[in-house]
């Protein structure tokens, strides 16, 4: 029984692992931190899995637990030293077809997001994931109006970071 449950869980997570990777990309500062956070999210998901009823989609259910882990539960270990340039490494991984200005623009955008606080990052993450304001509000536990207002503020804030 347990084995069956374990197998089912791992398969589901394997299929949806990109969601976790994307959260790590927003919250982790280095490849080490990325792996560490991925692991903690996996543990928390597994801990909560017995309560997962299957009336919601697995991916929807994952968003909450993964974000909760990244924002509230995760304890950065001391050995992780902030490494600058993690972003630039990722950006160089693949040769892009973008022209230089677009590439440059995107790079700056990712860097700007890194400067936001944890809650703002969550909003941006959910926004990039194409979630509507109702879903964003429910995930964070705030009202739709607040989510909308805050998202507009973040856009202004990002603009300021990009064009000081």
């Amino acid at each position: 029984m347990t084995q069956e449950l374990e197998h089912k869980f791992v398969s589901e997570l394997e299929k949806n692992q990109n969601i976790v990777h994307k959260i790590c990309r927003i919250y982790a500062d280095s490849p080490d931190a990325h792996n560490d956070l991925f692991q903690e999210i996996t543990i928390q998901l597994w801990k909560a899995y017995p309560k997962f009823r299957g009336d919601a989609k697995f991916s929807t259910w994952m968003y909450r637990i993964a974000l909760n882990t990244a924002i509230t539960l995760y304890r950065k270990s001391k050995r992780q030293i902030k490494t600058q340039g993690y972003d630039s490494v990722i950006h160089k991984v693949k040769a892009r077809q973008y022209d230089d200005t677009e590439e440059q623009q995107l790079k700056l955008m990712y860097q700007a997001i890194k400067q936001l606080n944890d809650i703002e990052k969550a909003l941006v993450f959910l926004y990039l994931e194409d979630k509507n304001y109702k879903e964003i509000a429910e995930t964070l536990g705030i009202t739709d109006v607040n989510a909308r207002v805050k998202m507009n503020r973040i856009k202004t804030k990002l603009k300021k970071i990009l064009n000081p």
Binding site: A48, R64, I65, L67, N68, T72, I119, G141
Partner: peptide, 8 residues
Amino acid sequence: TTASVKEL
């Protein structure tokens, strides 16, 4: 962990 961020 399944609560909203704020509730948690």
